[in-house]
């Protein structure tokens, strides 16, 4: 264990008065306090300064420390060992005492306390950042496209001052921006698990899932709609009315369209930058019933046709 020179940490002489020690602590605390300092490793340095002040501000602890400073055993490698049988008279045990997150060196001299009680006191830089909480949010396609306000319930862990973990259900209203894509993660700052001490609050990470749509299928920002057409509509071409995310629109199916042919409506997919496209997928279907008139017409077509849709039958 390395010996800590508390006087050096505060930048004062071992003969410094209580007033000088207090002033030195204030100066160093102002410089390294994690809430105000931009210094590198400020938190670790503030811990050391707070620990030094915890010892040197108390007459009893300072007397004991001075005694150890001169009598403690130090090996050739500079390692420090308290004298055999050492026990502090000003044992550190009260929750009202000002300490926390102190070094092994400090604890070997003045004892230690349950870790969670350390959260109280001037030396408290004990901190534990709250965990990020992950959840999923299923939305309809229209809600993704237009944006929506959703109420979500998430279960987050909480740690009380005694270190006990419990869970509670948080109810949050979340605004989902228009054009949010499936698989996006919404980060809601400060809505995850609570931090401990000066630790930051975790975030809530909501992964957006897409609920199945009865008409549309989605690929990234592109949307597809299968449009059934009758054989003569496919053969002669036709105009059909289709729904899109924005509104209903008319689309021309070109003559001679085959099943599976795609027609692209640029920019009519999901909102975004750039927006996705909307694809009409032609699907030729037979009418549910064929009456005698239709049957006769089909027979005329069959008699006149000399090309098979099956390529292996057209080979010479």
């Amino acid at each position: 264990m390395q010996f800590k020179d508390y006087y050096q940490l505060l930048g004062v002489e071992p003969s410094a008065t209580a007033e000088e020690i207090k002033k030195a602590y204030k100066r160093q605390a102002r410089r390294y306090h994690p809430d105000v300092s931009k210094e590198k490793d400020a938190e670790q340095k503030f811990k050391e300064v707070a620990e030094a002040y915890e010892v040197l501000k108390s007459d009893d602890k300072r007397r004991e420390y001075d005694q150890l400073r001169t009598q403690g055993a130090r090996g050739g490698n500079g390692q420090f060992t308290p004298p055999p049988g050492w026990e502090s008279a000003s044992h550190y045990s009260s929750a009202a005492d000002q300490a926390g997150g102190f070094s092994d060196f400090f604890e070997s001299l003045f004892g230690r306390q349950g870790s969670f009680h350390r959260a109280q006191g001037a030396g408290d830089t004990m901190r534990m950042d709250g965990e990020d909480v992950h959840a999923e949010l299923a939305l309809l396609l229209e809600e993704l496209h237009l944006g929506s306000e959703q109420t979500v319930h998430v279960r987050v862990p909480e740690v009380d001052v005694h270190g006990l973990v419990s869970h509670r259900i948080k109810k949050l209203k979340v605004k989902v921006p228009a054009g949010t894509a499936e698989g996006s993660v919404l980060r809601i700052k400060g809505q995850g698990a609570a931090g401990f001490g000066s630790g930051r609050q975790g975030d809530l990470l909501l992964k957006i899932k897409l609920a199945p749509h009865p008409l549309f299928s989605v690929d990234g920002r592109d949307i597809s709609l299968v449009v059934p057409v009758l054989p003569w509509e496919a053969a002669l071409g036709c105009k059909v009315t289709i729904p899109t995310l924005q509104h209903k629109t008319r689309v021309s199916i070109p003559p001679g369209s085959q099943s599976g042919q795609k027609l692209r409506l640029a920019g009519l997919g999901l909102a975004g930058n750039p927006p996705g496209d909307f694809y009409v997928v032609v699907k030729v279907v037979m009418p549910p019933t064929i009456d005698d008139t239709a049957k006769a017409l089909y027979q005329q077509l069959a008699a006149g046709g000399d090309t098979s849709p099956r390529p292996w039958e057209n080979q010479p």
């Binding site: 921006p177 996006s184 993660v185 919404l186």
Partner: peptide, 13 residues
């Protein structure tokens, strides 16, 4: 694609 967006939350609960 996974995009991280930052949105405001109304934490009335």
């Amino acid at each position: 694609t996974t995009t991280v967006l930052t949105v405001e939350a109304d934490a009335d609960g």
